[in-house]
Computed example of a mutant assay.
Amino acid sequence: MSNMFYDYLSEKIIKYFQTNIPDPGEKYYIQFENDEQVGELYSVLENNIISSSFVYNDIVRGQKYGTYELNFGKVQLIVAASRSNGPHPDFLATLRNLVGVDAEYINKAILFIHCSSLDSILGGAGSLSKEGMPLNISIIERDIKRKINETGYSDVDKAILEYYLDNKRKELAGSIASIFEYEDIIQCLSDSQITFEEYKNFELFPDDKLSTLTGKKLNTRLEENHSNFVKIAEIHSYGADNSKLENLYGEDGAKALSKPEWEKVPYSEIEKYISSKKNKATIEYYPIISDENLWDREEGDTKAKSRIRNILSFVSDTQEEVSFTLSFSEYTKSVGIEIPKAYQTFLKCVNNGKNFWLQLLELKIKLYLATLNIMIMA
């Protein structure tokens, strides 16, 4: 996790309590997802000028707990981290009960940072994530949007950040959102430019055309870019199925987008793949199934392999030649027929309407394994 992210959270918390000074005896908590996150914020909060050391001496248990407190005028906010290698929860619960009550703690409030549900500690404490508090998601979103407009980013980069923020809000609507969902964009608030390498962080392909657009056209292109990025990311999450990529972006697109660094492909290339796929007529091959002397099977299950046919012809001892027809859904052309030079004396291929007519000669002389390449031109 980046220090910038925790610096931001620390700043939000301190500014809130400087404006809304806690009353003696008040209790607050921040709940994170893991022990590392707890430790990061605990350390960053301590590193400021209003922090001073604090030691709780439990005479009954014969234990000491050293931490720190944040000074807000007449009230000191004790910060206690409940961690896997820290004090026992019962120990912290005793400290909580002293705050605002015991003579030595009469001007104290307390903030717990934890990653578990500890009722013994949190009873009566208020979350800093609830409505109106500094780490509330709605407040964080508004603050990020304000900071985006105050940065030195270009108008295009600001549009990217605002678009990403809006998508994040829609994505998390109706769910219990974590502040860590916003770490990437909070980290960017200290920068002044989004590099092409960073576009993937915002679920976008690098796109140099964005700088030529404004307003609705800019937003539309961001939507199209993002939509394609998400589609491809989802395909990769299930193992980069080439057939699915080919259905959307054609054979060339599938080759490029199946690679590990697919996020670096410029969006202009994605557009070309989509356009090529739309403009290319879908030609269907009709396998030979009615001739008992011919065996016709595809090379494999993928779309690319299905275009490679393995055809066996069973002939008698007296046959000198064999011919058969390959049928398609569209009219064929002679352009694209490639017969290797070694086969040209005995293998013939002629287009005829929606068919190719093939003839294999000199069967009595040799047994041939012939390769024929046909590129169907719509």
Rank of each mutant, 00 (worst) to 15 (best):
N3V: 11
S10P: 04
T19C: 03
D23P: 09
D23M: 14
G25T: 11
E26M: 09
E26A: 13
K27A: 14
I30D: 07
F32P: 04
V38I: 02
L41D: 01
V44A: 07
E46L: 09
N48E: 03
D58F: 09
D58V: 07
D58T: 06
Y65M: 04
G66V: 07
Y68Q: 01
E69Y: 13
G73Y: 06
Q76M: 00
S82A: 01
S82C: 01
S84V: 07
N85R: 13
F91E: 01
V99A: 04
N107V: 13
G124K: 12
E131L: 00
E131Y: 00
G132Y: 00
G132K: 05
L135G: 03
R146N: 13
R146P: 04
E150R: 01
S154K: 08
E162K: 10
Y164E: 15
R169M: 15
K170L: 04
E171M: 13
A177T: 03
F180A: 08
I186W: 10
Q193S: 13
I194N: 02
I194H: 01
Y199W: 09
E203L: 15
L204N: 00
N219I: 08
T220V: 05
E224T: 14
N228L: 10
N228R: 11
I235Y: 03
N242H: 06
N242A: 07
L245R: 10
N247Q: 11
A254T: 00
A254P: 00
W262C: 10
E263R: 02
K264R: 08
Y267H: 03
Y267T: 05
E271G: 14
I283F: 09
D291T: 11
E298Y: 08
D301A: 12
T302S: 06
R309P: 11
T318R: 01
Q319S: 15
Q319A: 15
V322W: 06
T325D: 03
L326S: 14
G336R: 13
I337D: 12
E338K: 12
L347C: 08
K348A: 06
K348D: 11
V350Y: 12
N352E: 08
Q359N: 10
L361T: 10
L369T: 13
M375L: 15
